[in-house]
Amino acid sequence: MMTQAIFQLEPLGCPSCIQKIETMLKRTAGVESATVLFHASKVKTVFDPKRIAADEIRTRIERLGYPVLAVRTA
């Protein structure tokens, strides 16, 4: 079963952030898909909860330099 999680970031400034975050997440094991909504400053991810936790994804996004303000899992 795949889980969806949406991470709310601080407002994103440069369009290159999109590529950075998406590439990093897509290379992360367990993450099925990742889309950055640039103008909404959100990251939508679909992942396998058996292989990676939403918290781990959050840490990775933050390590890249983007503080996560809120997480919503569905």
Partner: peptide, 14 residues
């Protein structure tokens, strides 16, 4: 920023 992007093999304005 430039280094960070380079580590992911992404070109950047930085």
């Amino acid at each position: 920023r430039a280094l960070q992007a380079a580590r992911m093999k992404l070109p950047s304005i930085e």
